[in-house]
Structure formats: structure tokens, C-alpha cells
Design a protein around this nucleic acid. Sequence first.
DNA 1: AAACCGGGGAT
DNA 2: ATCCCAGGTTT
Length: 352
Amino acid sequence: MMTDASQPPAINSTSVLDWYDRHARTLAWRVSPEARRQGVRPDPYRVWLSEVMLQQTTIGAATRYYLRFLELWPSVEALAAAPREAVLVEWAGLGYYARARNLHACAQVVVDEHQGVFPDNAAALMKLPGIGAYTSAAIAAICHDEPVAVLDGNVERVLARYLALETPVRDAKPLLRRELQRAVPARAGDFAQAMMDLGATICAPRTALCTLCPLQPDCCAAAQSEPTAYPVRPAKAERPVRYGHAYVICDRDGDVYLRTRPDTGLLAAMTEVPTSEWLPEPTGPGYPIEADWHPSGRVVHVFTHFRLELEVWRTVLDDRSQLTDGWWSDPRDARSEALPSLFRKVLAQALD
DNA sequence: AAACCGGGGAT
DNA sequence: ATCCCAGGTTT
């Protein structure tokens, strides 16, 4: 427990780096500590691409997308030259689709205004679309060893435990940033990655393997009975369920009707099957659909997803020309559409 | 400062 | 079912 009378314990970055030299994870975008010692420098494009994909996303989910993007677009110039639609198609399933739009916009800014070279410092990086406090610091530290505090969810947890922080992280970020900044060594990039690896493998959300941790000697939480009691979390506000319809419209050949969502809001600019406005409550199969393309529709499924409840209505249409805003597609070719997971599941259920 | 934005994996 | 994740943007 921190008191006013005692300074928080300093973070022993030497211990952390020693641990990292022995236990660094192997990741597709990472240059190992050994290779860095031999002079290998990370490619800012790859680091940026990985960091954006890893925003609120686990390594397991992001890695195959990272490898696919690198295969399709091995340089920032290649990505900038790609149609936005192609980027959205490849991003489909990864979530938080504003990231994909910002990724593409950022690539174009780097090419058009920075001669294809990412800025080499955190302050300049943060001006780019989709790059905030965390990502700018991570790129600058990892690629250029800029001595900046790289504070992500993992590191927040490590520090909240190290300091036995009694307030929610949200209210103590400046303190955490100061304490972390105070510890940043010359090997800033390895230190940043080391702290994140610690949070991922030793000081995990539900498990704390304190006997293996290089910070254990000075850790306030390790000295207590339950280190995993930190970080303390504020009571989260619960949000109401939203209701709507999804209309799976097929023609006689089995093609389904798809269209593009608006450029803002939920799943912006992505592909969808037609959906209704938000409804105050479920309507059930008797609900009158005021649309001449819906002659024989029926509810085939109720789909629940992320505080969203969609009644899936299926209908077969003889005359394609009744629908003109979108296009018809073979659902077996869903890979080539910018379809979020939600609509992939809706289609799979409705066509099962 | 708080709300919004998706999805998957672990428990 | 609930929590959490290599957060950023908008209001």
C-alpha cells in the first residue's frame, strides 16, 4: 500500500530487460532482443501495422491478419495504393472497423506527405489517423528507442499491481505514466515490449506468477495475499439491448442481396444484408414489413450478439430488379466481401 | 470525462 | 455468462 510518507518503489528496468532477454515471446512482427543487439532494426511499417491490429485485439486473433496484409501489401506504398474496399474486405472479422479506415488513410498520409517514411518520433506519429498515445509511443520506442512510456492495458495492470493502486487505472493514468517514464532505459524498445510480455505471460489478468516475475522483489501487490485484486475496476454501466431486423433476401439461384452500410456509426462502410432501423423491442413474425420486396418473408432465427438482438427474416425474391442500391452475391464467396463476423453468422444461420 | 466501437478466447 | 484484450475517436 502506497502512503503519502513513502515514495512508490522504482521499477527495476535492468531486471526487466534481463528477464526479457531470456523469455521474450516470438511474435511475427517482433525483432528479437538477440537480433536487435546485432543491429537489426524493426520496419516501422510492420510495427505500425501490427500495433493497429493489436488495438483491443488479442495476438491470436491478429496474427493471421497481419501476415495476410503483409503478403498483399508489403510496404506502406502498396497499402496506400490499394482500394479502400480491398482493405475493408481483408479486415473483415477483426472488428473495430474504424481502424481499417484509419489504417488506409494513414498509409496515404505517410506516402503523400511524408515521402513514404513514418515520422521517427511519438509526437509526430500521434498526428496521424488511428495513432493515439499508446501506438505513437510504441512505434517510436520499438523502432527508434525513443525513451517514452508505452502504456497499454497489460502495462497498466502490471503497474497497478506493482504499486497496489487503490484507484481505478482510469483515474491514475498520469501517475502510471510518470512512474513508467521514470524507469525507461536506453533499450526503450525492448523495455516496452518486455513490460507488455510481463503483463501477458506473468502478470496476467487472472493469474500472477509472482515467483517468476523480475519485479517481484519490490512489488506491492506480491507482498499481499491476492495480487490479482488489482487493478480495481470501476462498476461498469450496463447498456440496454438494441433490437432490429436483418433481411436475408435470396433469388432463385441462391444469391443473397448485400449492400454497403453508411460511412459512420456501427460497422461503418462495411457490407451488410439489409437491416431495419433500431426497434424498441422484438416484433416477432407477424410484424408488417412495409417493403414491396418482402412478399413472403418470415422470421427464421433470432441472433444475439454484443447487446444486439437481430430477428433474421428470410425471403425469396423472383425479380432482382426490385432492389437496386446493393448487389447480389453468392454467399459461398463471402470471403471476397467486407462482411463483418456478425453478418457472416447471420447468413450461415439463415441459409443453414 | 464518458460513450462508442466488434470480436474472440479464456474462465 | 462474464471478463478482458498491444486503444482511438467522438461528443
